[in-house]
Structure formats: structure tokens, C-alpha cells
Simulated scan of single mutants.
Amino acid sequence: MSDSSIDPAEVLLVEDNPGDVRLTREAFDESGIRNELHVVHDGERALDFLYQRDEYEDAPTPGLVLLDLNLPNLEGKAVLREIKGTPALRQIPIIVLTSSEADEDIARSYDLHANAYLVKPVDPEEFIDLARTFEKFWLQFVELPPSNHN
């Protein structure tokens, strides 16, 4: 397990639905997740954040990305392909967090090297349970790459 004296990893949420953003924030709060949650609302802004372009020039390198597939401007699969195809970014774990249960979306996400695929529960309590499980595994037990890996 990670040393609790280490600063918690920054998390980037790429999500265009304001309700899902609110639910994710609430789930993080209710689960006691201390990690900083940064939010962008489309695929282009996700890449701007990760490449520290424009308004995100001072953005931290996230230790983990939660990525919706259905995004405006640049879809999630294209964002995933770009991240995993860029040596300076490919070590960042990408968790697809989407409402799609389609077999082709699941298979394509893993083909593009997603680290996990989670289907968003509709029920808020189930979403909080998912956040707790996510936090325990990804933010307590998994050793994430150092943020200065690029």
C-alpha cells in the first residue's frame, strides 16, 4: 500500500454531463477521497490539460484519468488513442467511466490500452459504492507512475 505521507494523485475527470460531474464530486466527497479532482468537459480540453496548453499551462500531470467515451468536439476513444500514443503520457492510467455497456465500446477501449472500463451506475448510492471501490483499489493500493515521469 502507498505511503500516506505522499501527496495524493491528481485525478482528471473528462465528462460533459454536469449531472455526472456533480455525482462524481459527491461520490468522491462521500467516500472520503482526498485526491484533487480536475474536470474538463470535452476531449479537446482534456488534451489541452494533459499537454498543458492555453488556459491549462499550469495544470498538474494527473496520476489518473477518468474518461467518458461520449464527448463533444473529440470523442473519448480519440482522446484515449492520443494519450496512449504519446510517450510522455502513456503511463497515466486511463479508466473509462461511461454509460455504454456495448461490447464494441468495451473491446475498442481495451484495444486502445484503457486500464479499466467501468459502467456508470444510474443509482446514486451504487455510484458512491463504485467510487469507494475505485478509491480503495486505484488510489490506495495501486502504485501510480510518478507525476514527473515525462
Rank of each mutant, 00 (worst) to 15 (best):
residue 74 L to V: 08
residue 102 A to Q: 09
residue 41 H to W: 12
residue 29 D to C: 10
residue 88 A to D: 08
residue 65 V to M: 09
residue 52 Q to Y: 05
residue 108 R to I: 09
residue 41 H to I: 13
residue 79 V to Q: 02
residue 8 P to Y: 02
residue 43 G to L: 00
residue 80 L to M: 12
residue 92 I to P: 03
residue 39 V to P: 04
residue 74 L to K: 09
residue 71 L to C: 07
residue 22 R to T: 14
residue 83 I to E: 01
residue 75 E to V: 07
residue 22 R to S: 15
residue 62 P to G: 02
residue 49 F to T: 08
residue 18 P to G: 04
residue 92 I to E: 01
residue 78 A to Q: 15
residue 26 E to Y: 13
residue 6 I to H: 10
residue 23 L to H: 07
residue 63 G to M: 00
residue 27 A to V: 02
residue 82 E to I: 13
residue 12 L to D: 01
residue 64 L to F: 06
residue 88 A to W: 02
residue 102 A to V: 10
residue 91 Q to K: 15
residue 4 S to E: 10
residue 27 A to Q: 03
residue 107 A to T: 14
residue 74 L to T: 06
residue 19 G to E: 07
residue 60 P to F: 02
residue 79 V to M: 04
residue 66 L to P: 01
residue 63 G to F: 05
residue 27 A to M: 00
residue 95 I to E: 11
residue 84 K to E: 01
residue 64 L to S: 05
residue 88 A to S: 15
residue 26 E to C: 12
residue 58 D to M: 12
residue 55 E to P: 07
residue 65 V to H: 00
residue 107 A to D: 12
residue 64 L to K: 08
residue 85 G to C: 07
residue 91 Q to R: 15
residue 14 V to W: 05
residue 10 E to K: 11
residue 86 T to W: 05
residue 26 E to K: 14
residue 69 L to C: 03
residue 67 L to I: 05
residue 55 E to Q: 13
residue 99 S to V: 14
residue 7 D to A: 15
residue 8 P to C: 09
residue 82 E to D: 12
residue 23 L to Q: 14
residue 57 E to G: 06
residue 48 D to S: 12
residue 61 T to I: 03
residue 102 A to L: 09
residue 70 N to F: 11
residue 24 T to V: 09
residue 17 N to V: 07
residue 24 T to C: 01
residue 47 L to G: 02
residue 90 R to H: 12
residue 56 Y to D: 00
residue 38 H to S: 08
residue 87 P to M: 10
residue 98 T to F: 08
residue 48 D to L: 07
residue 64 L to Q: 01
residue 9 A to W: 04
residue 95 I to V: 15
residue 110 Y to Q: 03
residue 13 L to V: 11
residue 64 L to G: 03
residue 97 L to D: 00
residue 29 D to E: 15
residue 110 Y to D: 11
residue 54 D to G: 12
residue 92 I to D: 04
residue 6 I to E: 12
residue 43 G to R: 03
residue 7 D to E: 15
residue 56 Y to P: 03
residue 33 I to P: 07
residue 43 G to V: 06
residue 97 L to A: 02
residue 34 R to F: 01
residue 8 P to M: 10
residue 13 L to Y: 01
residue 62 P to R: 09
residue 13 L to I: 10
residue 28 F to K: 06
residue 19 G to I: 04
residue 11 V to S: 01
residue 83 I to C: 03
residue 56 Y to H: 08
residue 46 A to W: 06
residue 76 G to N: 11
residue 101 E to M: 13
residue 101 E to Y: 11
residue 65 V to G: 00
residue 63 G to D: 05
residue 31 S to K: 04
residue 67 L to G: 08
